[in-house]
Design a protein around this nucleic acid. Sequence first.
DNA 1: ATTGTTTTTGACCAAACGGTCAAGATCACG
DNA 2: CGTGATCTTGACCGTTTGGTCAAAAACAAT
Lengths: 203, 203
Amino acid sequence: MNANPPRTRIQKKNRSTILDAALEVFSRHGFRGATLDQIAGEAGLSKPNLLYYFPSKEAIFITLLSGLMETWLDPLRELDPSGEPIEELLAYVRRKLQLSRDFPRESRLFANEIVQGAPRMEHLLATDLKSLVDEKAGVIRGWIAEGQIADVDPHHLIFSVWALTQHYADFDVQVRAVLGPGHDPLAEAETFLDTLFRRLLAP
Amino acid sequence: MNANPPRTRIQKKNRSTILDAALEVFSRHGFRGATLDQIAGEAGLSKPNLLYYFPSKEAIFITLLSGLMETWLDPLRELDPSGEPIEELLAYVRRKLQLSRDFPRESRLFANEIVQGAPRMEHLLATDLKSLVDEKAGVIRGWIAEGQIADVDPHHLIFSVWALTQHYADFDVQVRAVLGPGHDPLAEAETFLDTLFRRLLAP
DNA sequence: ATTGTTTTTGACCAAACGGTCAAGATCACG
DNA sequence: CGTGATCTTGACCGTTTGGTCAAAAACAAT
C-alpha cells in the first residue's frame, strides 16, 4: 500500500496542481457539471495522467472537500471563550468574511454541494461540524447567561454569520449585478455586518 | 408560428406536469446534473414526449427560471412606501421566509444557478432585479432620511434579507444536520430574524 | 365511419463522458 | 552509462447523454 502523503516532489506538485484545477472547475460547474477533460485542460495535464494521481473523478472531489473542511471551520474554532464576547463574535464575522474574499471558489464549492443535498458530505456535517457548533453555541450561551451579550439563539446566530458572509462569495454575480459597477461589495459588507452584529448583540 | 400560451387542455396539463417534474429534478441536481430521462420519469412521460412540448433541455430550464423570477420578486414588490417602515420591512422578511418554507425547490434552483455564475440568468439580474432593488432601496433611503429607521445601507439591507431567509431553504441539510432532530428551523428562524431586524432597524 | 390533426413512442444516432491499458518517455541513482 | 522505477500519453472502450424520426396511437370534427 502507498502511504497517503505523496512521496516524490513531482507527485506533490502534480497532485496540488490537479486539486487547484479541480477546485476551479468544480466550483464553477458543480460535480456533475465538471468533466475530467476540463480539469485536465485547466491543470495542463492529460486525462489519463489525472487518473494516475487520483483513482477517479469522485476521489478528486472528496479529497478537495475534506481538505477544505478544516479551513472552513477554523474561524469558528478560533472563537475564544475567555475573550471579550462582542469583540470575539465580531472578529469571527470578519474572519469569515475574509474567507469569502480570499477563497470564493472554496465557498462556492461547498455551497454547490450543500444546495444539492450534500450527498458526499452529510457525514462530515453531522459529526465534525455539528460538534464544533454545539461546543461554541455553549460558549455563546454562557455569555448570554452572564448578560454580556443580548439573548439570541446561539445556533441561529451562527447560521446568520454563515448566511451573511458566504452570501458575498456564493452570490457574487447577483450582488454585483444589483450594485452595478464601482462597488467593492466585500468592503461595504464589512461595515454593514459590523453594524448589524453590534446592534444585534448589544446587551 | 405557435402562440406561446398552450392551446389545448392536454397541452396545458402536460407542460405544467413537465415543468413541475423538471423543477424537482433540476433543483436537486442542477442543470447539468439533471437528465431528460430523470425528468421524463418524474413526469411519467417518455423522453421524446418531453421534446414534443419543449424544444430542448435548456428550453425547459429557461422556461422554469423566467416563470419563477416573478414569484421570487413579488415579496419585495409588495413593500409599501406609504406603510409603517419597520413593520413593512419585517413583513417583507416574513414573506421571504414564507417562500423558503413553501418553495424550497424554487429557492435551490436559483441558488444553484447563481452559485454557478448565472450563465442563463445574468441578463434578468442586471435588468428586472436591479431596477426593482434600486427602486426599493430609494424607498428605504427615504425612510432613513426621515429618521424612521436606523441608518444602514439599503442595498446591503436587502442582501441581508435574501441571505438570511434563503439560507434556510438552500442550506437546509446543513441547518438540520447541525441542529439535530426535534427542531423546526423555519419557525425558529422567524423569531430570530424578527429580533435581528428589529434591533438593526430601530431608529 | 372517415378523415385530418394532435399526441405518443420505440428505435436509433452522434457526441461526450469516466475510465482502462499497453507502450513509450523521463527520471533517479549506482 | 545503464537500469529499474516513476511518470506520461494516444488509442480505445462501454455507457450515458441530448436529441431525431418515422410510424403508430389517440383524439376531434363532420
